[in-house]
Amino acid sequence: MRLDWDPVRQRHVLLGPEGVLLLNRTGAAIVDLCDGRQTTAEIVERLRGTYDHVDVDQVRGFLTRLIARGWLEVGDE
């Protein structure tokens, strides 16, 4: 799984064996914070440092969808 910038489409993309996920800016910011160590709460906290309105449920929903589709794994720690 790889987070990358696509200069052709001018947007972030998540690349994996499953296929390609085109991300918007906030989606890319969330994925970028997923390092296997931070909790969802910590990710939300970090996002609040950059964005005015961060909806916890939206972030949780986004991460849950990515996990369900095999794009992300929950870390051990």
Partner: peptide, 8 residues
């Protein structure tokens, strides 16, 4: 292909 947008 890359210039056309292929990623995978």
């Amino acid at each position: 292909a890359r210039a056309l947008g292929v990623l995978q």
